[in-house]
Write a protein that binds this DNA or RNA. Structure first.
Length: 649
RNA sequence: GCUGCUGUAGCUCAGAGGUAGAGCACUCCCUUGGUAAGGGAGAGGUCGAGAGUUCAAUUCUCUCCAGCAGCACCA
């Protein structure tokens, strides 16, 4: 019999009969490993114990101790078990797909009536029952025709479509059985439903999802579940979700009195004094950074005639998402159709186009805190993170092709400094390359992609390539922040655009005396201020760094005899540039401390008879229980420094 | 935009076919209290908007608006 040579993680190799299964390999090593094995990795692929090994390979056997593999298998089996439970409860429901995702899985179903929360409870109970049956999980490879005939006979049209979609490139069409229940699946799976921890999962929610992710297709019902190895891990996950909910910017925005939104202006923000203080503090900081980095700041119109949007190409592509403002003939000589600007670039080109530009003017870095309005689909709106009215820290660098690399490097360094100042150290770069539908020559794509990659390397950063994800006119960099609870946010971006200067006829006079087209680099660091402030709030759970905190200090009185002194302390702090206010209300100190702590005021100063006498303050910092006594001059000096933005220290 | 859910006082929420309730917040009074809620009294709501069914609708039905979760979208 033919042999295969398998190499184990320790470097040793052994020969086995060709076609041996991973389970047999595990059992050949030791009886206990044979029992504990759950799957293998064969040549880098996660391998079902039942699958035969037909060629020489590197192999590693996994047990439940291997988290990555164990969780993948558990969640994958749970997806199947859930689908089976649903079909046992409601045999008419059609099954579609059910992949593993972060922390769990989902499965999409086609069913007339919506699933209710009560249904979820029933499904969960049925799943536990199935797990307790300890049914064997088995697998077979089928011919395509047989699979299609089977699914047609069973009235599972989605599965027929899936089988048909499997490319004819030799990959097996694999069937899995969990007991009598069957599903098309590429695997791998556990060997027995009883191996799935019956108390480590929970069904979380139902929501609509389009078949195959396409909004032209039918809407299915998706049930989400989370699954772990044991109830403790499940509990920890649920607790984490509760913690995340506590730092929701919409909740904190209300509690800290930062902003509100209301029906009459969906997707737009009413900033309250506290929130606006954060906004302007951040914007002032950004403006100083831009000034230092060689940008000029401009400001451009909000309401612009459609002619410009037609010329830029936005009218054709994004009309549906623009706020259209029509001025009728009663108000003007002739009817005009305008749109609120959804982006700033066409206006910036208009500024660039005023007067003749020389190659000596390039690179020209034109910045605007550009207020934009986009008619986002209603379902996309989310607190202040995704809105219809927002302001970008937008800028366009007009340059020559040869400038791209150096300008990009300069920008990455600029952005890195700002993220560091704002307390974000965990971020990464993604480089999106040429998509299938594109304009421009291959040479110019080569050059821009290479320039962006080189710039990242030159600035000392790695990047991940997103193949084909670039815009139709040029490649882009995306800068992705990871926040305190592991969520990713794309904030910064840099896009190479030779298209818009072409469409809007921007030019400069080159050294050769002839007209040339500049390239535009669209770039932003925070992206939208609204969204970025939302991220800041959630990152810090409302406890913003002192310099950004809208209310930095509250001076609370313990007895009313201290009222005058409290005002004196406030005056001293204000003179030092600290945002301070007095709380001389007739309330107990406990009450005031609680209230201001909940409002996330970073420093509470309490003053009573002793402090008045000694010209001191009792200092209580947010998050700390103990207090300390400092002289008025000491605390003023300290807070004066703390109140400065990082770039002013 | 799509699927589902939700909309009652400033906030968090209870309630029911016969035009509403709690806690906190708010106002006033008492209290001057040393670091996360002192006590008492009071005021406050066209029950998201419109239409329909009904003797009667905030409650049932429909339409619309907004929000939430997810999907799709994000120049």
């Amino acid at each position: 019999m033919a042999q295969v040579s398998l190499t184990f993680p320790d470097g040793n190799s052994r020969n086995f009969d060709k076609g041996i299964t991973a389970a047999e390999v595990a059992a050949s090593i030791s009886t206990s490993l044979g029992k504990k094995a759950i799957s293998a990795t064969v040549n880098g692929a996660h391998w079902d114990l039942q699958w035969p090994i037909e060629a020489d390979a590197a192999i590693a056997i996994h047990t439940m101790q291997d988290d990555a593999q164990a969780l993948e298998l558990i969640r994958h089996d749970l997806a199947h078990i859930m689908a089976r439970a649903v079909q046992e409860l409601w045999p008419d429901v059609k099954v579609t797909i059910g992949p593993v995702i972060k922390d769990g899985w989902y499965y999409d179903f086609d069913r007339e009536e919506p699933f209710t929360p009560e249904d979820l409870g029933e499904i969960e109970a049925k799943m536990k029952e199935i797990i307790n049956r300890r049914d064997p999980v088995t697998t077979e490879v089928w011919e395509r025709d047989r699979a299609i005939a089977y699914y047609e006979a069973n009235n599972e049209p989605y599965k027929v479509e899936l089988v048909n979609a499997i490319p004819d490139d030799g990959q097996p069409i694999r069937m899995y059985w969990h007991g009598h229940w069957q599903d098309l699946c590429r695997g791998p799976h556990l060997q027995n439903t009883g191996q799935v921890p019956g108390n480590g999962f929970k069904l979380m929610s139902v929501a609509g999802a389009y078949w195959r992710g396409n909004s032209d297709n039918a809407m299915l019902q998706r049930i989400y579940g989370v699954g772990f190895k044991d109830p403790k891990a499940l509990k920890a996950h649920l607790t984490m979700l509760e913690e995340a909910a506590k730092r929701d910017h919409r909740k904190l925005g209300r509690e800290m009195d930062l902003f509100h939104m209301q029906e009459e202006a969906p997707g737009q923000i009413f900033w309250h004094p506290n929130g606006w203080k954060i906004y302007t503090t951040l914007q002032d900081y950004m403006r100083r950074q831009q000034d230092r980095d060689g940008y000029v700041e401009v400001n451009t119109p909000q309401v612009v005639n459609r002619k410009l949007w037609e010329a830029s190409g936005h009218w054709d592509n994004y009309q549906e998402n623009m706020f259209i403002v029509e001025v009728d003939e009663e108000h003007a000589r002739e009817k005009t159709v305008n749109a609120l600007k959804p982006m700033n670039c066409p206006c910036h080109v208009q500024v660039f186009n005023q007067g003749l530009k020389s190659y000596r003017d390039l690179p020209l870095r034109m910045a605007e805190f550009g207020s934009c309005n986009r008619y986002e689909p209603s379902g996309a709106l989310h607190g202040i993170m995704r809105v219809r009215g927002f302001t970008q820290d937008d800028a366009h660098i007009f340059c020559e092709e040869k400038h791209i690399e150096a300008e990009t490097k300069k920008f990455i360094e600029f952005l890195a400094g700002i993220y560091a100042d704002l307390g974000f150290h965990d971020w990464s770069i993604k480089l999106s390359t040429r998509p299938e539908k594109r304009i421009g020559s291959e040479e110019s794509w080569d050059h821009s992609e290479e320039s962006l990659g080189n710039a990242c390397k030159a600035a000392g950063y790695d990047y991940e390539i997103q193949e084909g994800e670039g815009a139709f006119y040029g490649p882009k960099l995306e800068f992705v922040l990871t926040d305190a609870i592991g969520r990713e946010w794309q904030c910064g971006t840099l896009q190479v655009d030779p298209n818009l200067p072409e469409r809007l006829d921007a030019s400069y006079i080159g050294q050769d005396g002839a007209k040339h087209r500049p390239i535009m680099l669209h770039r932003a660091v925070v992206g939208s201020f609204e969204r970025f402030i939302g991220i800041l709030i959630e990152e810090h759970a409302g406890k913003l760094p002192f310099w950004l905190a809208p209310r930095q200090v509250v001076v609370t009185t313990i007895v009313s005899e201290a009222d005058d002194y409290a005002q004196e302390v406030v005056a001293a702090l204000k003179a030092a540039g600290v945002r301070a206010e007095a709380d001389i209300r007739n309330e107990k100190i406990n009450y005031k401390v609680r209230e201001h702590s909940l409002a996330k005021v970073p420093v509470i100063l309490a003053v009573g008879a002793r402090e008045v006498e000694e010209k001191t303050v009792s200092v209580r910092r947010l998050g700390e229980k103990q207090t300390s006594v400092m002289s008025l001059s000491e605390i003023t000096t300290e807070l004066k420094d703390a109140a400065l933005a990082p770039d002013l220290k």
